[in-house]
């Protein structure tokens, strides 16, 4: 068994897997890719790359898992890898690969178990992320950890910049995993949380999750919230004149807030920019986005008549 060549089927939905695909192709290990029915730009890019490279691919049909199991068998895949794939796979597919089915998850599981681990790690201002390769079980993200590797998380990372780091690092990580799998050098470890440490979930953020809460978040919390949602969720959300505005980038600044409520616009002007009071000081709103476009804080203020003293997130006095 150890000497059987790896024939890997990849279940994916995002272009961040492209470096991994390239590595697998170079090693002659990729037999096919299963895509989700997502049709956003990111998913379309992946589909386009696969077609251009004549890489066998097909769309997953959740209502017809047996057909998918047959497809895996027809590719003579012996290893399954799930990477950026949101559907839960039935046992009939999981059991179709003799060398097992594995899931690459971007966190130190069991922390940040869920669909959006990078989002929540940026938002929670983690200083380091992880790549975890786990054995696929019937329950989501619950299998044993086969391999784990630290991944740097820069203090200014956005969802996409960290995603790009993950894309590059995961290509090497998957190769290391395959080598160890072939050599039978993997040691399965159960997912254990540190005693007394609460588990942090990483679900897809809801609309409420994206909202800035001026009463509970400090400057660094809001800055991280904006980066975590940049660009997929239009950053963090703030309310003005009953409209929702996306905050793509914000920077904590040294500016006295003179005891005004958090969320109050403290300053509009060059060179300092658009500055808002927070619980612990002040925050410069660098980049804002609305339907009309993407604006610097200052340009937004001028174009839409924002005034110092107005309060974001509730009715001005």
């Amino acid at each position: 068994m150890e000497n059987e060549a790896i024939r890997l089927v990849l279940f994916a939905s995002s272009s961040v897997v492209i470096p991994t695909i390239n590595k697998l192709l170079q090693a002659g290990q990729l037999v096919g890719v299963v895509l989700t029915a997502r049709n956003d730009a990111d998913a379309m890019q992946l589909k386009q790359q696969l077609d251009q490279g004549n890489i066998p691919n097909t769309y997953y049909q959740p209502e017809n898992p047996e057909q998918m199991a047959h497809q895996v068998e027809s590719w003579r895949a012996n290893t399954g890898l799930i990477f950026t794939f949101s559907h839960k796979l039935p046992l009939s597919i999981i059991n179709a690969c003799s060398k097992g089915f594995y899931n690459l998850h971007a966190s130190a599981l069991p922390q940040y178990r869920g669909a959006m681990p990078l989002y929540w790690q940026i938002r929670n201002r983690e200083s380091q992320s992880y790549l975890s390769m786990i054995k696929v079980e019937e329950a989501f993200d619950s299998g044993d950890i086969m391999l784990q590797q630290a991944m740097p998380l820069h203090a200014l990372d956005t969802l996409n910049s960290l995603g790009r780091v993950m894309a590059e690092q995961s290509a090497e990580f998957v190769q290391e995993f395959i080598v160890k799998l072939q050599d039978n050098r993997l040691v399965a470890k159960p997912q254990l949380s540190e005693i007394g440490l609460a588990l942090i979930a990483a679900p897809m953020p809801s609309q409420q999750d994206l909202m800035i809460n001026w009463q509970s978040m400090n400057s660094h919390d809001i800055s991280a919230l904006a980066r975590a949602g940049n660009p997929l969720f239009n950053g963090a959300m703030l309310v003005w004149n009953q409209s929702i505005i996306g905050l793509l980038q914000a920077t904590p600044v040294q500016q006295p807030n003179y005891g005004v409520p958090a969320g109050t616009v403290l300053h509009i002007g060059e060179p300092e920019g658009l500055i808002v009071a927070t619980l612990d000081g002040a925050l410069r709103l660098d980049v804002l986005t609305i339907t009309e476009g993407v604006f610097s804080g200052l340009t937004f203020s001028e174009r839409f008549g924002l005034d110092a003293g107005i309060l974001f997130g509730s009715t001005p006095e």
């Binding site: 509009i268 002007g269 110092a308």
Partner: peptide, 10 residues
């Protein structure tokens, strides 16, 4: 910039 500047002071 001097004409448009507005802010909260002490």
């Amino acid at each position: 910039a001097l004409r448009k500047r507005q802010f909260i002071a002490r």
